[in-house]
Design a protein around this nucleic acid. Structure first.
Lengths: 258, 258
DNA sequence: CGTACCTTTGATAGAGTTCAAGAACGGTGG
DNA sequence: CCACCGTTCTTGAACTCTATCAAAGGTACG
């Protein structure tokens, strides 16, 4: 089975055969995209809307932007004027405390929207950094309103709120084992939705970034990977992960606390 | 100085003299409210918008709903069709894991909006329970769109996303002392914005609920209250809190980690 | 006015952090 | 293409913070 996103343009499995053509069609040659022909349209903003809403939005064309590994998409305090839809690649978002401590607040892959935390204050409230060479669609905020896409934006933001609740739950009530199991299962689910293997993938973040996201030290993350491997749940070799026992990972989350 | 919200209808200090009249005007006598005359309008959904937007919305009239202490405003899984603006009282929201563990994800006071996590799936994603006899404005979601209030909703949701990031930071990187200090300072700030004393208030939640929110055990919360008191930062007697040294509390958050 | 709930405080234990050192990897330049 | 260097990862050992268990007050609500 194909391993998720080894290269920048690795295409989702299920659409692999037509992916090249689709991408060509989605690109007007001037670094801009048309939603109608974008192979991410089911995952992106218009996700889940009725057909005529898609049509209204489909002719809208958005500029792309490439972000190299390690570069920032935006920084805390920068003026907000657009949302970004991840087209390819992988991002992390993080917040910094005055004293320098920082916390990774999320990882973002193709089809996901970042930047919504800037709407309220018209300033971005976090840093977003590419973990590999990536590409985004720039969605000017004003344009969303013209296109009558508010409802889709509400949905996307609401989903984000629910996701945040999940992270709070994870940080507030779960033990280290459970957090990492939940993290791996979450990644697996998201890769599946993109047509990649649910059981084999490359982590694009370091142990330190995983630890920051999960509220653990990087050593604990490393130790847990080793333990999961010893228990036959996964195989780890650096950033390459194979999940051998999904049910076993799920069991980690329920069997621990009693 | 007046202590925040001892009674259901305790009015914010700064508006205390006209509060009774204001409330009377905001109520059309049929359990419904007009935003224009609501004394919470600066804090609620229209907060921060330009004048003509306020006017467009001001004539909208919303039904109220009373929720008794201990009763639920809504439950996880319930169908979503409205947002709720807290008019008076105090709520907590929480999520439950399959195994019964639950986590308080937020506390909500007058002028704050709850229910936004239901927009995405059209089902509420959390439980919201009144911690004292309370009252909300019911804001039907469909009505927001008719009234062209989407932008205000975006702002409210975005602010919530930023708030969530703060909670993640708290849970992910702060130690117990820092969490509780941050919690007290946050409450203080919110009370001030409502015209109450920044330094003296009644907690409306139990130690257990505070602990759940902060990812700590109730015993740790209790011990920290005692320690803060011994250190002269606050005075605690059950749920009554007096902050003696705001700067000292702030210092707890920076001096600990080095 | 009684009882159930909440809070405080102590003692103990354990999960996870911190410090440390060596190993493996990957990118870069000769 | 290979060697080198910085970064990332792994693993061990000691320690520390916070949870857990337990028991005794204290409150407040019905």
């Amino acid at each position: 089975m194909q391993i998720a996103s080894i290269t920048l343009h690795a295409a989702p499995l299920r659409r692999a055969t037509s992916a090249a053509k689709t991408r060509a069609r989605a690109d007007d040659g001037a670094g801009r995209n048309r939603c109608r022909t974008c192979n991410l349209r089911e995952l992106c903003l218009p996700g889940g809307i009725v057909q005529d809403e898609v049509d209204a939005f489909s002719d809208t064309v958005f500029t792309r932007r490439r972000v190299k590994r390690g570069d920032t998409l935006y920084r805390l305090g920068e003026e907000f004027n657009a949302l970004y839809a991840v087209r390819a690649g992988f991002f992390k978002s993080s917040v910094v405390l005055e004293d320098g401590r920082d916390q990774v607040t999320g990882f973002h892959m193709a089809g996901e929207i970042v930047g919504m935390d800037g709407i309220g204050t018209e300033r971005h409230a976090s840093d977003v950094i590419a973990l590999e060479d990536s590409e985004v669609c720039i969605i000017p905020y004003a344009r969303l309103e013209e296109a009558g896409m508010q409802r889709q934006l509400h949905r996307a933001m609401s989903r984000e709120l629910v996701r945040d609740q999940g992270v709070m739950m994870l940080l507030g009530t779960m033990r280290a084992e459970e957090r990492l199991a939940a993290f791996l299962l979450n990644l697996s689910t998201r890769f599946v939705a993109r047509g990649f293997s649910p059981s084999e993938f490359h982590l694009r973040m370091t142990r330190e970034e995983i630890g920051s996201y999960l509220g653990l030290s990087l050593e604990t993350v490393s130790r847990l990977f080793s333990r999961f491997q010893d228990d036959g749940l996964i195989a780890v070799r650096q950033k390459h992960i194979v999940i051998h026992d999904i049910a076993g990972l799920k069991a980690v989350m329920v069997k621990v606390q009693d």
